[in-house]
Nucleic acid binder design. Structure first.
Length: 157
DNA sequence: GCCAACGTTGGC
DNA sequence: GCCAACGTTGGC
């Protein structure tokens, strides 16, 4: 089966694409939404993902990363000192997972405003009003359109 | 099982 | 800081 495509949101003040590039890999912890978790459980090694900066000025796309390790329990759920602690999750039946990602390439930044002008993205959940999902699937055309737009913007700028 | 209240996310 | 959207919680 062909690789799937995804999008991860991160607040760059907390963890940016450059942080990922510097570290080399990162366990994507802290996801506490069932839909997002289920998407992570569906990810396979080699799947590629857009790294999106939320809560930024402006928000937008910063890079491409890839899954290098499939879902496993996110240990921060068991740590009472972690802000991601979940008292209702048992070690024998962990509620929350993470995947591990690595950088692929930094992209010329594409703002959310610019993404709205990409025809392939009209139906993308990322652009839906009130969208709060931090991990979401992308279709191959959506993923490719984002990368292509960035490459075009990079040559222009 | 319904639904109002509440908390969080995220753009602006 | 504000507000809209939406997921979760809790009373009934």
């Amino acid at each position: 089966m062909a690789a799937a495509y995804w999008l991860f949101k991160s607040e760059p003040d907390v963890f940016s694409y450059d942080d990922l590039a510097r570290k080399g890999s990162e366990g994507w912890d802290g996801v506490r939404n069932y839909m997002a978790r289920n998407y992570m459980r569906a990810m396979k090694v080699g799947d590629q993902a857009i790294f999106y900066h939320s809560q930024a000025t402006p928000p937008g796309v910063a890079g491409v990363c890839k899954v290098i390790k499939t879902a496993e329990p996110d240990m921060s759920q068991f740590d009472p000192k972690s802000k991601y602690f979940d008292a209702g999750s048992k070690r024998t039946d962990p509620r929350w997972d993470l995947v591990t990602v690595a950088p692929v390439k930094k992209l010329a930044f594409v703002s959310l405003e610019e993404l709205r002008s990409v025809p392939e993205l009209i139906e993308c959940r990322l652009l839906a009003k009130g969208n709060r999902l931090s991990v979401m699937p992308l279709t191959a055309p959506e993923f490719k359109a984002i990368v292509a737009f960035s490459q075009k913007a990079g040559r222009r700028g």
